[in-house]
Simulated scan of single mutants.
Amino acid sequence: MRTFPLFLFSLLSYLTLRAQTDTLYVNDTHTLALVLPNPITRAVTGHPHYQFGYDTNSPGRLGLLQGHPGTDSNLLVLTEDGRAYSFALAYRKELQESYRFVHVDKSIGNVRPVKPMDSLVQNPMPSLGSNSLQYRKASTYFLEKAQTVLRSKRKDGIILRLRDVAYYGTSTYLVMEIENRSDIDFEVDFVQVFKAHGNPRKKSSYQKLPLEPVYKHRMPTIVTVGQKQRFAFVVPKFTLGDREKLMVELREKRGSRRVMLNWD
């Protein structure tokens, strides 16, 4: 665990007092995965009963949080873009969530010095237009190319198919398809992709890490009765090792239908 310089810890503590703080509930038998908008550079908990682990050698967006019975505390996280995030910590025997995606608007402030106006004019933020165009072109290509089915799962008349897993640049393109063979239209709530390791029956060695999409192409909002919808789901590049598998979860927005697909 890295140690904050005193001035930085004091600054973040001051920002914490001014901001509304979300509460994270943790325990000592499960791991809560916290995914920040940008790579984590520093983090500190207010009490040794709580541990927040993250990669200090190659900064990433993922942090893993656990805690032990005792007093409540707090967590302060600093990301690569200079933003600070504050969370209250509390122990619970049973967790309501196993992961949390944190949006940038949850930041309590930026600890970097404000640049002069002329510096901002001379060095504008880069446009993401080129990346979006690249994602769209590659997604269109892989959608047209995918003719086979790697894995499919059917439940309650809804079929989820994984048609292709393709690598291009620094991203992985997942070509998927939803078919509605039920008698009711299927309104898509969300599609979430995970990389899982180990046996879920052995909780001590099982890990399920979400892969946040960087781009979605032709993502459907509703699949009507008898209809098929094919789309591309783009995530950061990854590979599957031994005992690892890809998990795709599809959920209905106004209903209870849920489809889970596994591929290894």
Score class of each variant (00 low, 15 high):
31 T>W: 07
14 Y>F: 11
172 T>L: 09
223 V>E: 05
244 E>F: 04
31 T>G: 00
37 P>K: 08
59 P>Q: 07
212 E>C: 01
118 D>S: 12
208 K>A: 04
149 V>R: 09
221 T>W: 03
17 L>M: 11
83 R>L: 09
194 F>P: 04
181 R>A: 08
57 N>T: 12
115 K>N: 03
174 L>F: 11
259 V>C: 07
80 E>N: 08
81 D>T: 15
188 V>W: 04
202 K>F: 10
76 L>C: 01
1 M>P: 12
82 G>A: 12
160 L>R: 09
136 R>T: 12
261 L>I: 08
121 V>C: 01
174 L>I: 10
101 F>H: 09
49 H>N: 15
152 S>A: 13
61 R>V: 13
170 T>K: 14
64 L>V: 01
48 P>A: 03
135 Y>Q: 07
255 G>Q: 11
90 A>W: 00
126 P>V: 02
146 A>F: 06
244 E>R: 03
129 G>D: 15
51 Q>T: 13
73 S>G: 14
38 N>I: 00
71 T>M: 03
207 Q>F: 05
88 A>E: 14
60 G>S: 13
157 G>R: 11
173 Y>M: 12
250 L>G: 02
174 L>G: 05
41 T>C: 02
255 G>I: 11
74 N>Q: 14
241 G>Q: 08
157 G>K: 10
90 A>P: 00
163 R>E: 14
185 D>W: 00
39 P>C: 11
7 F>G: 00
253 K>R: 15
38 N>V: 03
108 I>A: 07
77 V>D: 02
77 V>K: 03
41 T>R: 09
85 Y>H: 02
255 G>E: 11
65 L>Y: 02
98 S>M: 11
99 Y>W: 12
44 V>S: 07
70 G>D: 10
240 L>H: 08
